[in-house]
Design a protein around this nucleic acid. Sequence first.
DNA 1: CAAGAATTATGAACCC
DNA 2: GGGTTCATAATTCTTG
Lengths: 102, 102, 102, 102
Amino acid sequence: MSDTPFDIDEAASSRARQAADPESNVGGIAADRLMSIIERIERLEEERKALGDDIKDIFSESKSAGFDVPTIKQLLRLRKKDPSEIEEQETLLDIYRRAIGM
Amino acid sequence: MSDTPFDIDEAASSRARQAADPESNVGGIAADRLMSIIERIERLEEERKALGDDIKDIFSESKSAGFDVPTIKQLLRLRKKDPSEIEEQETLLDIYRRAIGM
Amino acid sequence: MSDTPFDIDEAASSRARQAADPESNVGGIAADRLMSIIERIERLEEERKALGDDIKDIFSESKSAGFDVPTIKQLLRLRKKDPSEIEEQETLLDIYRRAIGM
Amino acid sequence: MSDTPFDIDEAASSRARQAADPESNVGGIAADRLMSIIERIERLEEERKALGDDIKDIFSESKSAGFDVPTIKQLLRLRKKDPSEIEEQETLLDIYRRAIGM
DNA sequence: CAAGAATTATGAACCC
DNA sequence: GGGTTCATAATTCTTG
């Protein structure tokens, strides 16, 4: 038997026993499971937002301390790549720049 | 023989005849072709930006005329989809909303 | 008197003369004007998309010709900034890299 | 006296006492502080990414369970707004749709 | 408060 | 065809 929220037979039979249904099917949808999904995501997004705010705070403080925030961000981007890749990219860029006289 | 800008033999031999090279190879790069690519793209991006500005102007005027711009944008999004798809989406959303009691 | 689509008096009076209304007000909305806005934007977006496709074609051809597309894109980004700004950015980045030993 | 990493006098004087400098100035930059900033942000971004992966996992499981992920996302978006705003938006959209005959 | 930039999310394209 | 990267669209936040 299917496990999906769209199983028609399950949905049909659920109408008669909805109150007692541990899955609380509503319109063929496993309502409890859907609600659980939504609440878990909202919880995680909340934590995620909090971290984003913390990061933003650090950038603010950095700016106040006289650092250039765009440069710090570029630094963070560079540190994500491995050094060989950086070197490779820069070399190729230099070649192209020379080719067009920049 | 390869046709790419990175062909080493081609690059090597080009050094001796660079002045006369119709492709003006620089560091193994077909400089003229690269420059042509860049200029064509820049031209197109310029036109593309002009159109974007025109669109922005229309939205500004719409707002001044009392229209709600986000709603107009939503309307434009809807018009990109075919009607059956819209109906399907709205139906599904309603089912889910009922399931979680919204 | 207001000219907006939401002017109540205008909307009210329009109900009696809707057929003859040069603005074809529907539900208090200047329907003709709204339709005109939408069609103009759709027209411009169409042209904009065509240009985007042209640009994409050039990148495809560039790749086929052996060029590295990400590097070309970086080149285009550099050319948008003025040289002094580029120099300034790179200098600052170098200082920061040295400070943290990269 | 300024506290910024770019204070010239501070930078100049720091050259002579760099080894003993508790701030470890390098090229006029408070290296320790910069490193601290970077490491704190990287730590937070790591946690942030982990949460993003968790969210992605839940969407994957939802899809496997037969739910429509885009609809769930739309539901989450709706839940962020207050109900009156939703109602208002939907009403306005309906008015516009009627005005252009959609 | 409006305009612009930057970040995030969604959709498309490409490779495996 | 599924997963991953890339492009575009939209939202958000900052700045003038």
